[in-house]
Amino acid sequence: MACSHPTNAPHPKANSASTTIKGGTKAVAEGTVATFSVYRGTAESGEMKTYQVPVAEGMVVLDAVHHMQANDAPDLAARWNCKAAKCGSCSAEINGKPSLMCKTRMDALPLDEPITITPMKAFPVLKDLVTDVSWNYRVNERITPFTPKSDDTDNWTLYQEDVERVQEFRKCIECFLCQDVCHVIRNHDKKNDFYGPRFMVRLASLDMHPLDTVDRLQAIKEEAGVGFCNITKCCTEVCPEHIHITDNAIIPLKERVADRYFDPIGKLKGALGLNKSRK
């Protein structure tokens, strides 16, 4: 199913679920100046302000934000840490598309019109590009932690093929772009009913860990609300870590829930107390 939003994404899509990767290819001419339109303000009031930034080869949008701070707007609020797409701090919407600012190259954006930078829409604005993402941390606390069969790790035998899918989920850098783009959260604000893609990935990493002993299906169905996802795969498209969120995490969780609660034989087994969480 195609992802129909956010709007205004004239530049080529960032790498999607496939493994093909392409960097920007356009060379930027010496002396090029880019125009940015950046949200300045709080949750109550704000406006788009214009900044001019000289473009250098290999520059990313976060470099441009740093240029604005150093030259025009020292109090422009933006989060960043690693500038290497490893920490997931600098999430924002660039030309309407949820993106990491440190990973969005200037030569991949059209420079003949202003580049807009706005805060993530699904979360309350604190100031400028900084949003209140604390809801995500509260959700994470509700997830029962990893509970292994035994503490004797010297006698654990885990083969690479057993842990590979869990490792895919554990690559998540918690940028929350998947949460931002998710219709259920962004458009319908179902934060009380649905944990969102990030925490489906976390739940999947625990449920599919070969040594975890917790039966998580009830929580995945009820508290986490896996049924709310309607598989538009928008989350997968924006994931900077290229985690196959929908195909590898959410759909298998939905299947496990369906097997347990909606399949007639599964229901019968459940009634007889024969169910075990599949590992």
Binding site: P145, T153, W156, Y159, V163
Partner: peptide
């Protein structure tokens, strides 16, 4: 390191599962 494994860290494995 063993403690991290007990807490859920998933390191790359050797062919014999260590």
């Amino acid at each position: 390191i063993r403690e991290l494994e007990r807490w859920g860290a998933v390191f790359d494995r050797t062919p014999d599962g260590k």
